[in-house]
Amino acid sequence: MKILVTGCAGFIGMHVCERLLARGDEVVGIDNLNDYYDVSLKEARLARLTPNAAFHFHKLDIADRSGMAEFFAQEKLQRVVHLAAQAGVRYSLKNPYAYVDSNLVGFVNVLEGCRHAHVGHFVFASSSSVYGGNTRMPFSEHDNVDHPVSLYAATKKANELMAHTYSHLHGLPTTGLRFFTVYGPWGRPDMSPMLFAKAILEGQPIDVFNHGRMQRDFTYIDDIVEGVIRVLDKPPLASPGFDKNNPDPASSWAPYRLFNIGNHQPVELMTYIETLEKALGKTAQKNFLPLQEGDVPATHADTEALRSWSGFAPATTLSEGIGRFVEWYRRYYQQ
């Protein structure tokens, strides 16, 4: 198939591209290579993809309406994996307009492209952040998610609603994936594995929020990619028997589905730090701080729906995943 991956120079995007190329698909990647974090890391990821003759890169911002329309008109795409977005809960407090431009305007541009190109399946990245103030664990796709606690989360919830509209109005087969704390080799520098590893190796303190009373459903990158590929290969169908009087947020009468992708094994923050310390062979200096505005104390994914639909659910242990991450980190940064 000919598949578009937006955000192809991103952490998840690069890994998805590699898997698709390895199995013989033709991959078209777009990325604006913005400077939200170190551009050289994005370029290094891209350099892993460009030698493959089946990979074609376009430097393009999804917020560029005319550019996106022209791109979709030229390319004959069969499926789309939409991963490009302005990421980060904390940054959304500082620069909200970046999230409007990329996660709302850009998202509509991609939807419009899929609509007019008659794409066979649109798979997009949502986030566990949509669960916001929910306190019932584990987080289920069947739960109401109308109380986001950050603008980033609100844009991801909006993406789910916008995508459903296109699925309903235009018959676009659509699947949204709520990712839970993805980590692993080639990860983002603004996320805790990279931040903590750098600080620990340099003898600098790490910030431990909510005084360490946090839980996260850490999900290894290879598991995320496997979930994305499994879902991509199974476009949802319309459900004429859907009960409109008792609606389920995870499904629809339209060809639309939502799935969590998480490890279903939440880990205490202090346990996670201990695992990283062990892999690095060095103890962290810890700076204990209150819970950050816009953050939540715990995440825990219910992955039964994903398992039932695709036959797969993430299962890589934290110690195994952190070990692989540290191995890559030392090699890449020559530590």
Rank of each mutant, 00 (worst) to 15 (best):
V225F: 13
V228K: 07
D207W: 11
V231A: 08
L195Y: 00
N210A: 13
P193R: 04
W186P: 02
Y220I: 04
G184I: 03
M191V: 07
R213L: 09
E226S: 12
D207K: 13
M214V: 11
P235T: 11
E202S: 08
N210H: 13
I221A: 03
G203H: 03
L237T: 11
V228N: 06
M214H: 02
A197H: 00
R213V: 02
F196S: 05
I224N: 07
A238H: 12
M194Y: 14
L232F: 14
L232T: 06
K198G: 00
P193D: 06
V228E: 08
P185L: 03
A238T: 14
Q215D: 05
Q204A: 15
P235A: 09
E202V: 00
K198A: 04
H211M: 15
I221F: 07
E202N: 08
D190Y: 05
H211N: 15
D190S: 08
I224G: 09
P189C: 07
K234Y: 10
Q204C: 08
P236F: 15
R188M: 11
L237H: 15
G227P: 06
I206Q: 06
K198P: 00
A199P: 03
A197V: 01
I206G: 05
I229S: 12
S192E: 08
P205K: 04
G184E: 07
M191P: 00
D207P: 04
A238I: 13
I221C: 04
R188H: 13
P235I: 14
T219A: 07
R216P: 04
D207G: 02
G184R: 08
I206E: 04
D233W: 08
M214N: 01
G212Y: 02
P236I: 15
D207Q: 14
F209T: 12
